[in-house]
Write a protein that binds this DNA or RNA. Structure first.
Length: 325
DNA sequence: TTGTGTTTTATTGCCTCC
DNA sequence: GGAGGCAATAAAACACAA
């Protein structure tokens, strides 16, 4: 017995035999649900108490099986019948109509006030306790369904995020490979031009070369190209973009696919770099010719020039967005 | 018919609220 | 302290394949 709760389930089936047989045929027939639900004053289930009804619970046609499985032969003796009703109450299912009635009531409100419980019990011919239990179990089923729905939504969201993440990871690896390729080309070109070692003092006087522009032409044409478009800070920004290529502002033709990789609104945890920050700095400082990349403090970002290669964003902004590689 | 898995009805114990 | 809600669980009822 639940703490303090008083419920005698057997009492609900404590009807006399005469009542049982009176109700057996007359009250177990189905009636249109809507009329039952709307009538209110008509206790349509009154007398069809599930505890005492022998009607078949499936469809109410009574042709398949009796309500009480253990009492399905009319030729049982009186002793056997008496024995049955001295046994504790067995579980029995509500009729289809009763369940539909309860379902409609549940749709209106899944909580059960005492008055409504009493009225429902009266209308359905059930014990108020049975109505309360039905609502309780129904709420539990509803909650389970809701959890399943929530899980499906979360699963779909996770799958989408995972796909985005995988795409970005792939993009990142491609960009890393591209960076290596470009630096190799720069080194090679510097060796060929005998320009490998240049001091900081003459870097502003030397002709500047844009590695990205150089990449856009064939290998054989590199020596013929005179690059005049970009100032030092522009090249610096190119460098910055190469190493911070996940910047949301990065829109050149090569990397624009970053912006196409699914919903960019998703936020990812920055992945741990394969290299430490020191290693990355060393890589930047050792592999790339120093004259191409001036110190940040030497660059004026206050008024970016038209057609600037830094896309109008100072390098510091890129640092905000950058992931470590 | 029987074994097995699922659904439904009901109980129990704990918790919160008034 | 009683009423009622909820989670966990038992057990009957049911569905279905072999």
């Amino acid at each position: 017995m639940a703490g303090g709760r008083v419920f005698n389930s057997a009492s609900s089936g404590g009807s006399s035999l005469s009542v049982l047989f009176q109700n057996q045929k007359a009250s177990c027939a189905s009636e249109p649900l809507d009329s039952l639900f709307l009538s209110g004053s008509s206790p349509s289930f009154l007398g069809s108490r599930s505890m005492v009804c022998f009607e078949d619970v499936r469809g109410g046609n009574g042709s398949n099986r009796p309500f009480f499985r253990s009492y399905d032969h009319e030729d049982n003796g009186d002793d056997e019948l008496e024995d049955y009703f001295h046994q504790p109450e067995k579980k029995r299912r509500l009729t289809v109509d009763q369940v539909q009635f309860l379902e409609k009531s549940f749709e209106v409100d899944n909580k059960l006030e005492p008055e409504r419980k009493t009225q429902l019990a009266k209308d359905l011919g059930l014990q108020p306790r049975q109505v309360a239990i039905w609502f309780q179990n129904r709420r539990a089923r509803w909650k389970t369904k809701q959890l399943e729905k929530d899980y499906e939504v979360l699963q779909a969201s996770y799958d989408s995020l995972k796909a985005d993440y995988d795409n970005l990871l792939k993009e990142k690896n491609e960009l890393k490979a591209e960076v290596v390729l470009l630096t190799d080309k720069l080194l090679l070109r510097d060796k060929e031009s005998g320009n490998f070692e240049l001091s900081d003092t003459n870097k502003s006087e030397e002709p500047l070369e844009n590695p990205v522009a150089a990449e856009s032409i064939s290998e054989g044409e590199v020596s013929k190209v005179s690059i005049v478009g970009c100032k030092q800070e522009e090249i610096s920004s190119v460098k910055s973009d190469i190493f911070d290529s996940d910047s949301p502002h990065y829109t050149d033709g090569v990397h624009s696919s970053l912006l196409d990789a699914g919903d960019s609104s998703h936020v990812f945890e920055p992945e741990q770099s394969d290299l430490s920050q020191d290693e990355e700095d060393n890589l930047n400082n050792s592999l790339l010719p120093p004259y191409i990349f001036p110190k940040l403090e030497d660059v004026d970002y206050s008024d970016p020039p038209e057609n600037s290669c830094n896309f109008g964003f100072p390098v510091e902004d890129h640092a905000f967005w950058s992931w470590s590689y």
